[in-house]
Write a protein that binds this DNA or RNA. Sequence first.
RNA 1: CGGGAAGUAGCGCAGCUUGGUUAGCGCGCCUGGUUUGGGACCAGGAGGCCGGGGGUUCGAAUCCCCCCUUCCCGACCA
Length: 468
Amino acid sequence: MAEPILTPQAEDFPKWYQDVVAKAEMADNGPVRGTMVIRPYGYAIWERIQSAVDQRIKAAGAKNVYFPLFIPESYLQREAEHVEGFSPELAIVTIAGGEELAEPIVVRPTSETVFGEYMAKWVQSHRDLPLLLNQWANVVRWEMRPRLFLRTSEFLWQEGHCAHASYEDASAYATKIHLEVYNDFLQKVLAVPTYVGIKPKSERFAGAINSMTCEGMMKDGKALQMATSHELGTNFAKAFNITFQSEAGSSEFCHTTSWGISTRTIGGLIMAHGDDKGLVVPPVVAPIQAVVMAVRDDEAVHAACRELVLRLQDSGIRAELDISSGSFGRRATDWEIKGVPLRIEIGPRDLAVGEVTVARRDTSEKAQVQLNTVVAHAQILLEDMQRLLYSAATGHRDSNTHDVSTVEEAITAAQTGFARLDWKTVDGAGETVLKKEAITVRCLQRRDGTMPISDQEPDLVAIVAKSY
RNA sequence: CGGGAAGUAGCGCAGCUUGGUUAGCGCGCCUGGUUUGGGACCAGGAGGCCGGGGGUUCGAAUCCCCCCUUCCCGACCA
């Protein structure tokens, strides 16, 4: 083990990220700038993210639908801020079927506008509300500086679009999604602790009256927005005429919301837990939770491995068999790069004493375990690892979040982590000063760390950082 | 989109300045054998329109122009 397989994080974090994405076989660049080919291992992680999020969305009452990829350009233009925010990153089709189109077609950067058009049709009465919809889709936002998973011109996500009768209902539901779907998922599944708050006006979604965010801290101390929920007020309802007849008989505008989580979270997962040996995938989201490795190319060893894989699978552990013929070190390293939580080694020495060797990815600890109790042991280790990854990430975040009192101190703190200071100290000129240092306000919170209803609340604190 | 660097086998690179027959090296890959408790070894082998297009030339990986892609730094972003 002379030379490192990956660039060490401390030497060059972005290079480490690229190395790990390539060597763990997560993704490749696509042929068109900014596009991404997600490979089987990366996609398996995405599928697990999808199912965990989808389950929570359905529990919150929203129903899945599918809207088209193509949106008439005129739709985007109906909401002034929305079109202004998105026009620089739109991909627009002007020729189709060999003919110049009468009206250009936009490849969706997000779907508020089409949803709006159909919500207007579907909603007539207060009895039709709330209308809670979600779709899993790809979207296109042309990016200047693409990075696999973190910023690609096409990405996969889920976008929820809801219409409510009142501001209070809309706000409450967007908040519920934010906390019970996104934040719960990020903490329990990805084991990423977050700062939950609202965006200042400068960072708000184009067309929103309020944007909520879950901000995670990566190992290099930079912030990553891992999910957002937006309150759109009546902006889109007015642009698309989404109205309903109230109980009293009057015609009212709906209050709409939208909320999303994307393949970017995979980048967050990589950078929140990965180390110099590669990925560290939390057991709950890991497509492979345990690999059973034959140490020797020997029939008795192979048979023991096969049998153990079946026992692990029977107990609900996602286990994989490795009886391939490469050298031990090579195979072990490959599984480490992929971040598989447990590696169970079986060789003649183990078999002779009825044991196996269990190595856990997070701590690198190796232990001898009785062959007949290893399944129960593995369950315990997986649960322990999930907990430990979350608490380690929380420790890293907390020890790199500094309370400061001036913009200058915030700039210093944001070189290596997050800074927390009074919002009134930053609001206005402070934000401009920070921006020059590539530092932004990631979110606004109340003093107790909870999420405010609006940025008009007094006594808010700002969390500022460099970000992806 | 601005400023910089780069594209030669799957990956990492040499060759280019000074144009000249069959374009090299390391890793990986394939075959056979010996191996396997932390990136094994020996022998043999496959793999290239030198990023794409155009030009200069008797002749281009090499010189010139345009385009595409990648990386770093800025402006934009889930």
